[in-house]
Amino acid sequence: MSGRDLLSIADLGREGIVDVLKLADSFAEVSEREIPKVPALRGKTVATVFFESSTRTRLSFETAAKRLSADTMTFTAATSSLSKGESLRDTVETLDAMGVDAMIVRHACAGAPKQVARWVRAAVVNAGDGQHEHPTQALLDCFTLREALASRAGVEPADDLSGVRIAIVGDVAHSRVARSCVLAYGALGASVTLVGPPTLLPATTAGWGVEVSNDLDEVLAEVDVVYLLRLQSERLEESLIPSLGEYSERYGLTRDRARRLRPELLVMHPGPMIRGVEIDDEVADSPRCLVTRQVRNGVAVRMAVLFRLLTLGDRKASDDGQERRSA
């Protein structure tokens, strides 16, 4: 994170990602303690500003902020003055005026966090914007994968994921998680294959550095990790898939498919999982499934992101920053 915001994985680059992962190693140790709290961000205030629903991301950020001894504020669109007609800009500027140091922003529109970052002095973290990106999800996925591969091999976690083959399966076209993951996995040297029906794959993947396939079984035979995406049920209404049943049959980790999987294959999912559609209970609850670890690591990784932004980034409160902002 060279700057004071985390809007896209591209802001970090390979070096930044590795830095976050190493820092997260230290915060993972903190999280294991009886008192999982450090005074690092005492006196800082972190606000979660969510214009879209969320369970794990918001709670994960709030837990991360609290474990760093920061104060937290929660903004929820539904119970705010937005419903009285206050604009996005006035809303975030109000929060900014209260002296918030970081804003964790989720919005249905791609680019909204970037726009917010132009308006406020606080550091802005993109917690999911439309179909654009969800960078902290990709970071925690990298962390989890690196940890799982290392613990299996009985070694210390490596810096990168070179040589690891990952399939991202499902509704890639509409997925902000997929976009961030492609960037992050790619930056760390993994090879990525996108799998799904043509209607749910991006129109073009030129410049993504990925392979594309419509045949899950063929890909499963070749990869080390399957990363499942949630199938949003509204895709059915948009006629992008014939039926849930058929989708599940072709692109879900069904029980039948699960029994044919190689034992060392790892399964990941950003949550929320829709059991019975993209993943069968038997897979979701098996040791190869890293979903619980993903959630647990999310806190440590978000601690690392907040710590970096609020201590290592540009001096937020400096006049210099102020000038840059208003320019």
């Binding site: 820092l23 230290s26 993972a28 140790e29 005074p39 609020l310 290592l312």
Partner: peptide
């Protein structure tokens, strides 16, 4: 022990742990 998260100069200069505490 790495004391980076406990330092009193944390917001004065970049402070980052060198290794994981064990």
């Amino acid at each position: 022990l790495d004391v980076a998260f406990y330092r009193d100069d944390i917001s004065i200069r970049p402070v980052s742990p060198e290794e994981v505490t064990r």
